[in-house]
Computed example of a mutant assay.
Amino acid sequence: MNNSSQLNNERPLVTFALFAYNQEQYIREAIEGAFSQTYEPLEIILSDDKSSDRTFEIMQEMAEKYKGPHKVIIRQSEVNFGTALHVQAVANLSKGKLIVVAAGDDISESDRCKEIVDLWLLKEKPIACIHSAITYFGESLEKSFIRSPRHESITDQDRSLRYLKNDEIPFFAATCAYSIELFKNYKSFMGGSIIEDGIMSVRSLLASQILSINKPLVRQRKVLESGGTGYKLSNPERWNRYMLSRIISSINQARDISQSNIDINLKYNLESYYLHKAFKTSKFIISFSDKNTTFRKFRFFISYIFFFPSKVGFLKRLVSAIHLVNYNETKIYKSIYKFLKK
């Protein structure tokens, strides 16, 4: 582990935070992407959330062999925290003015940090989220493709508040970098959640500084099943963990909004919305004693389409419902999914 960078007043120290859990088959490429960053000064934190495979050992091996200009720190959680607390733990350790986040199965382009810092400095170092376009690739896709940033830069309060009211995440979380103040100015994430992007979206929108870069800086691997996909009614334990995470995330969002200085009436309405969302989500916790019958699937299917607390369009909700009850080999599912991908 080596750090030959000379800190100076022109270029702020940045943290490149790589988060991994049971990703031994992909982690080498992710770490190589971190080590390839051209920006200096840079600290790289390789963080493992108590994997049960060789992810952490590979991190240790690669860190020991690294001879480049960046400072490399490796850490491992005492227990499996879940994504939210994992991110919080690394933020507490970070010394950078910006935290560039990366997943253990994604690959960052070598100029990612440089592009992010250049834009941040151009905008005079606001408390901000900076995100970019993204390249999708991997085993679940026929071919790779690029998507532009989910939304252009959002730098005024009125527009930011519209996104808050619509409960919309305006970025691809895998591409984000965050000012350290978005962690320090708020209470720590609540534990037990695998979701952090919704919370960071609320904090970024409250800051009214979400800056976009129309260049793909991250290659996100799309696998057949990952921590954020593949939920099925037939796996109630996994589904319930996801529902619990949504509940905790909504409560965390309401708490963060309560700390803001937005209009008092709007603050009350937004707090009420997110707390009510948490309550409605709790209705979708699955009982382990229920048998996975056709009637149960149909009842869940209808409830999900009409009552699940989400503001996505009807067709997307329908596709999700079909997938959840494991009917994604049907013609209607394939037709709708093909239509939505156009």
Rank of each mutant, 00 (worst) to 15 (best):
A174L: 04
I264K: 15
M1E: 10
R238E: 01
F308M: 03
L93P: 00
S260K: 09
M1W: 06
S310G: 03
K123N: 08
M190Q: 10
E109H: 04
C113T: 08
K297H: 12
Q60G: 09
S132K: 04
S110V: 07
A84R: 03
S188V: 06
M59S: 06
S212E: 01
T330V: 08
K143V: 10
S77M: 10
T294S: 09
P126S: 00
S148R: 13
F145V: 01
V90R: 08
Y273Q: 12
K95F: 05
T175P: 02
L93W: 02
R28Q: 13
F81Q: 06
A84F: 01
Y178Q: 04
L121V: 07
S272W: 05
K222R: 12
I27E: 05
Y163I: 13
A34E: 06
F171A: 06
F295A: 12
K342S: 13
F172H: 03
A133C: 12
H70L: 05
G192C: 01
T135W: 03
Q37N: 04
V79D: 14
S272D: 15
E124A: 06
R11N: 14
A278W: 05
L266Q: 06
N166A: 15
P41Y: 02
N80Y: 13
I305P: 03
R299G: 01
V79H: 11
Q6K: 13
A174F: 01
N22A: 04
G230F: 09
I169G: 05
G82V: 01
I264S: 14
L324P: 11
T294R: 03
K143T: 11
F279K: 14
A84T: 01
M243D: 00
E40F: 07
L224G: 12
A321H: 03
N252R: 08
I262S: 10
C129G: 11
K280I: 09
I107E: 04
I257M: 14
K184A: 13
S212Q: 03
K277E: 04
A20S: 14
L42S: 02
K187E: 09
K215S: 01
V79E: 15
P12T: 13
R219C: 04
Y337Q: 12
V79K: 14
T55I: 04
K277Q: 14
L121E: 12
R221P: 11
T155L: 03
S153Q: 00
L7R: 11
N269V: 05
Q25P: 15
I332P: 15
K50F: 15
